[in-house]
Design a protein around this nucleic acid. Sequence first.
DNA 1: CATAGGCATACCGAAAACGTATGGGTTGGC
DNA 2: GCCAACCCATACGTTTTCGGTATGCCTATG
Lengths: 295, 295
Amino acid sequence: MDLRRLRYFVAVAEERSVGKAAERLRMAQPPLSVQIRKLEAELGAPLFRRGTRGMDLTEAGLALLSRASEALALAEEGFEAARAIASGQRGRLSVGYMFVLASAVLPRLVPELRRSLPGVDLDFVELSASTRKTLLLDRAVGVALCMPAIHHPEIQVAQIGTQPLMLAMPARSPLARLSAVPVGKLQGRPLIALPRPEEEPTSSAVSAMLRRHQVVMPIVSRVETVHSALSLVLAGEGFSILPACAKLGAPPGIAFRRFVDIADTIEIAACWRRDSSSPLIRNFLKSAEKVVARL
Amino acid sequence: MDLRRLRYFVAVAEERSVGKAAERLRMAQPPLSVQIRKLEAELGAPLFRRGTRGMDLTEAGLALLSRASEALALAEEGFEAARAIASGQRGRLSVGYMFVLASAVLPRLVPELRRSLPGVDLDFVELSASTRKTLLLDRAVGVALCMPAIHHPEIQVAQIGTQPLMLAMPARSPLARLSAVPVGKLQGRPLIALPRPEEEPTSSAVSAMLRRHQVVMPIVSRVETVHSALSLVLAGEGFSILPACAKLGAPPGIAFRRFVDIADTIEIAACWRRDSSSPLIRNFLKSAEKVVARL
DNA sequence: CATAGGCATACCGAAAACGTATGGGTTGGC
DNA sequence: GCCAACCCATACGTTTTCGGTATGCCTATG
């Protein structure tokens, strides 16, 4: 009842000769002969007719051969599948991403993932500020691209890139004539902000930066998505402070400018459940880092 | 790459516990634990997550499990098939029979074979005097029921019964009033004979018997089959000397009588190629003997 | 009759597997 | 908070099995 015996049997049956099969199996002829006879003894059935010129399958041998080769192929397939899954070349992965990153990252990330992980069944889901943590903890998504990271004891974080903060304003605004804006110039100007820090930590980096420079900007609107913020900016409602990558999804008529002497960045992070850490996620990280590095 | 390892793996996966699986496999727990780890090492893939309350399959393990259980089932099926074929419980057998035996033997033999060899794919072919030897040698039939045996160096014969010779005549014939007919009474009467001895040895037993009793019967017809012979007898063309079993297929109006003081019999034999002797044929013989004994 | 080719048998050394004894980590109850 | 129970992992000695070498037997061939 040994997989090796079956392999030997199939070899002998295919070569119709113990000697030839032994050569193919890189072993000596006598032990192979012994194994075949042991198999026959275990089964209580002669599998070969020994002729003077090699071996010939009996009916019983023929019946065994078809099943045995199928079984061997199936076992081999199982081994391969397990190896592929264990090395993260195969499986299923649901990738969550936050809206800010959609325009900048997805168009490059999706083809890159499909290329480097062809055996993986990928799907992509947009995360909202209110559900992202839940979806991750409930395993509805396997890994989430966030900006910045989610903090939670069961969630593991890997930073895969950073983005400088930039000022978004209407192109016709006088400040847009500067190539870099001094932070002080923002004093008192209306700010279109993203959700409160508790739910959407992106804006906490912004308020920290403003606080550090002792600049106060009255918040005229709080919106859920970058897209809404940009629309309000375009409408002349105020200014917004966003990661540089938001520029890629911005409509024409919006100007993005960096700040003078300010190196504040916000991190792009991959987050996943600590207990569902897997080689597949490791492979995902490699691809994501590669894509984000070229932003 | 051992079938045993796969069996162990499936047991552990199903029991979700090394200890339980070891119990099921009638072995100690530590060696089983070792085998599982060896399998994982060979694959380079962790198959289980070790929790504090037993083992839990990983994705890779799940992928292997489905294939492994299929492969095991297939291998087991192959073993069973080989065993069944080797013990003659399974296979294909073409049974040839001579026309004389059709009415008497087939109605009992066919159900008996289907009952005792349910796994065997049987078919039945009628043999003619001219083709029976060829069909057997060409393996078109695996075994042939003949009366009497075929003689040929490559053909093996087993006698499975005997039949007394009987006189067939119209029921209105004066001889039919006797319960047993003295051979001498046949002197000079017309005989309806079966084919010449070279091709149809049945009639050689008849002529030998007549010769031995110095009785001469002019042959008025030579016909191919018992059925034709009986039709001519019914038509009043003459007498025929046939094995007792022919009575079972005879139309009404024909009387069969035994002979006085004559124990001449003709053998019913099974014939098959010496080199295709198999347990299946051995099983066939058992059934055939059983049926013929009750004629 | 001698030789060659192919499978089977015998024996020995090496490797693998099994069992017993034991360790370590976690859970659950007193 | 400690101790017992449970379960898997490790260590080691014994036994089984496997593979290699040497050799025998049979048959076909020249």
